[in-house]
């Protein structure tokens, strides 16, 4: 898989928030084989030095860093946050979130497109957190995005793919655009489903971080992503309604 000209070894992308400890986070990353870690920027007080400690931890993971604009509700806020993230993490990559609704954390499609256009003009490589809406996807691509990150379900819900039809349509409309199902996954089977549908990767955080054993869950997701991708590439059989015997009918002994 390639995004913005960079080869990404793993089709699993993992967030760094909500783990019980830095050690558990590091072990979960090791077991996941993730190639990209998402991070954020947050307020720091003088002498706190929490940022420096986290930066060391993140760099120690040995994976590409994708900063986000999580929690931003306006274009201005998202753009300023992106600039701060670019300086802090020394990368043009930005996972662009412009949230439009507090309860569902649904992206604001209008603000998202506007912010994406501004950031692309400023030299950013934008990974937009979007919905499965094909018109919105088209606008984001026109704005200069080269990857799309449609949600599976609202952030942190673990509901899986709530609009399979919509996601299938999106995938079919833009077959050559790298697409990452981002948010809403709770179980490895849901990740496998997304991969079987032809999505290029999945991004998750809560499903691993909030599992009783995050490292084991990370391993489970890694295998599911690999299994789903193999299934997609293997060209699955068509389902049918009527049974079709798999054992040959001819040659069966006549015993009545």
């Amino acid at each position: 898989m390639e995004v913005y000209g960079t080869a990404v070894a793993s089709r699993l992308m993992l967030g760094t928030a909500q783990y019980p400890s830095p050690q558990v986070l590091a072990e979960a990353f090791r077991r996941s084989g993730a190639g990209i870690a998402t991070v954020s920027v947050r307020r720091e007080s003088g002498g706190e030095k929490a940022g420096a400690a986290f930066w060391e931890l993140a760099r120690g993971l040995g994976v590409a860093i994708l900063p986000n604009t999580a929690g931003c509700h306006s274009v201005k806020e998202a753009v300023t946050t992106a600039h701060m993230a670019r300086e802090l993490f020394d990368t043009p990559w930005i996972k662009l979130e412009v949230i439009g609704h507090a309860d569902t954390l649904q992206p604001d499609p209008f603000g998202l497109v506007e912010a994406a256009r501004i950031l692309v003009e400023d030299g950013f490589q934008v990974f937009p957190y979007t919905t499965e809406d094909v018109v919105l996807a088209d606008r984001l691509l026109s704005a200069g995005c080269e990857v799309l990150m449609p949600w599976g379900a609202p952030i942190g819900t673990g509901l899986g793919l709530t609009n399979v039809y919509g996601l299938r349509t999106l995938r079919a409309q833009f077959p050559d655009v790298p697409m990452v199902v981002d948010a809403g996954l709770g179980l490895p089977s849901q990740a496998a489903q997304a991969m079987e549908m032809g999505f290029d990767a999945v991004l998750l955080n809560t499903a691993v971080a909030k599992a009783g054993d995050p490292a084991a869950m990370a391993d489970g997701f890694a295998r599911a992503v690999e299994a789903g991708r193999l299934a997609f590439e293997a060209d699955p059989m068509e389902p049918r309604d009527m049974a079709a015997p798999s054992t040959p009918v001819i040659g069966k002994a006549f015993l009545e």
């Binding site: 760094t16 928030a17 783990y19 991070v39 954020s40 986290f54 986000n68 802090l88 955080n205």
Partner: peptide, 10 residues
């Protein structure tokens, strides 16, 4: 004035 640093994120 806003002053931010690297943090965990999803």
């Amino acid at each position: 004035v806003e002053i931010v640093a690297p943090r965990q994120g999803g």
